[in-house]
Nucleic acid binder design. Structure first.
Lengths: 339, 339
DNA sequence: CTGAAAGCGCTTACAG
DNA sequence: CTGAAAGCGCTTACAG
């Protein structure tokens, strides 16, 4: 159906078959209104019949749309990226586009990947998922390819990234609500497991926690740094508990995976949750749901969708006005057994 | 570094700067041995200096390597695809290639995506992750693009897909070992939660279970069909329990997610695991690990790597001999609390 | 409304 | 060992 003898048909052959010229076939394919209804029908017919699909390389080379969107991300635990990609793919599919997924192996690698696409000419647009914060430096800000930041916001300063669309999570409000809830349960003394702050989200959650504590004199908090994964979180919490006799009222974690480590540490010390101490995560992974851990639900598929929408909005409108759009994703607290 | 004023440099400009011709630059870039050492050095220098990167569309149009590998998959629960992609990206990275990830929304969509790439001319190669079994029909077997099957094997019959490389899991051995283990624990009466059998893996696990029961006269089994997700599994098990007084010795599930549903159902009926009944899953998701559920570990990242290796092996050797390679991935039982 | 022609940036015979 | 030229399959001014 798609081909005769193995080789794909070219536009020229379609033109022959439809008794017209390449130009006209091209026009029909791109919905150019300057084609008579009759011709359009005839061409569309032949195109359909032979399952013709224009060669994307030729199209890309010519400078037109390529139907490819680059997605750059770092592989993160528990499938945030995976779900975001799913959401993007859902939207891309509606716009007849494909995702070119590039996984960065390190912050440096992330920047390299971005530089590779930034000049343009490879893809129609580029989505940067949770980039390392160093990407926001001016050094790498200049770019020609339309780009959208996902789970990250460009700095307010007007330099560099000023005109980039972005999708961000309402981390601050989520942390505030979470804290309020814990305080209402009687928590006064907290331990916060802090992310490295390399990504915007981690950084913002850290800031939000600090700010909340600072605003409330009656509260106090210890901070545990360097707990990136389940194992390191477990060890660090064990170490923390070693040093003191009493218990804090709650462990607040910048993400779920770290919270799992905390739970493991507590379990091994026979400390009961939530009776002796409360624990909260952030992300709402499937595991969190299954073990009924209190956390903040992050609608990752939706985030992917919204990000892709922003990109296609930009790609498909010919507006030259460069207003930067910023979508804020609301997060909801999942109040469960661990708190 | 990468550009002067926003536009990427072309090969022609590099040639000018290096005082030579496009042809020679092209030769240097593709490691053609027919270039003098001196010229090569001079060109390489300029290329390096300007961070020149050849336009992939031009290259692709010309029929050369595009550095893009299509990966077609269906979004499956619990990140199997995500991990597989990670593994593939690891390997692709070493070969300076990118992944074009296409998520199928249904079996039909999967076939459509495949047909889109099968003719060739879009990507260097195509990886089919856990395709629906209908893809193995002869109808869609003919293709010009190099392809590899992941978590799926082409039928033994010499038709259609005969010459396709593939990576498969040793499902049969895993099920055998798992059953042996349960039998040694005294289990005689089983309930099997069956996959739809739409993918090769699900189908093969179903077959392996059936075969095991058939081979052992002392064992008996009920089969619950149609439990695809946690919710449906829970409901179906609840329904199953409703109908009878006694309990089976073990619930064997074709994957972890379904096993979670079983655990929920048992929990809600206050049936203790493993004291009253044993439960096993398949996949070894992070949740399974965390809640200490017995399951079969599927090394999904490794699977991705092996699949990609097979593809690049084919792409980079000029062998015309079409031997199909088949990599079998060994699985290991994770014997934990739930059994 | 339609077609002939130029050109996107490469690679690869073909000639030297 | 090197370069001039053709051509991959499109799109888009340019002319009619």
């Amino acid at each position: 159906m798609a081909e005769q003898n193995g080789k794909r048909l070219t536009m020229w052959q379609i033109a022959e078959l439809a008794n017209t010229s390449k130009s006209t076939v091209s026009r029909v394919l791109s919905n150019d209104p300057h084609v008579s209804e009759e011709t359009r029908k005839r061409v569309a017919q032949v195109v359909e019949e032979h399952g013709f699909r224009p060669n994307l390389f030729a199209r890309g080379l010519r400078g037109g749309r390529t139907g490819q969107i680059a997605v750059i991300g770092r592989w993160m635990e528990e499938g945030f990226l995976a779900n975001v990609i799913k959401g993007m793919d859902l939207v891309a599919h509606n716009h007849d586009a494909h995702l070119l997924v590039c996984l960065a192996h390190s912050s440096e690698d992330y920047v390299n990947l971005w530089e590779r696409f930034a000049d343009g000419g490879q893809v129609d647009g580029c989505i940067l998922v949770a980039p390392p914060r160093e990407l926001l430096n001016e050094r790498v800000a200049s770019h020609h390819v339309p780009a959208v930041l996902c789970a990250c916001q460009a700095p307010q300063s007007r330099k560099g990234w000023k005109q980039v669309d972005s999708v961000v999570l309402d981390n601050v409000r989520a942390i505030d609500e979470l804290m309020e809830l814990l305080v209402n349960k009687g928590c006064r003394q907290f331990v916060y497991l802090k992310g490295t702050g390399d990504t915007y989200d981690a950084w913002e959650r850290n800031e939000a926690f600090d700010a909340y504590i600072t605003r409330h004199d009656e509260l106090s908090a210890d901070v545990i740094k360097g707990a990136e994964w389940r194992d390191s979180a477990r060890e660090l919490v064990l170490q923390y508990l070693e040093g003191r006799t009493g218990l804090p009222d709650a462990f607040v974690c910048f993400n779920d995976v770290v919270a799992f480590g905390v739970l493991e540490a507590l379990r091994s010390r026979h400390i009961r949750v939530p009776d002796d101490v409360r624990v909260t995560g952030f992300d709402d992974t499937t595991t969190a749901d299954f073990i009924s851990m209190t956390t903040v639900h992050v609608p990752s598929v939706l985030i992917g969708q919204e990000t892709a929408k922003l990109l296609f909005l930009r790609l498909e409108s010919d507006e030259e006005t460069r207003i930067a759009r910023n979508t804020v994703i609301e997060l909801t607290i999942k109040y469960r057994d661990s708190a």
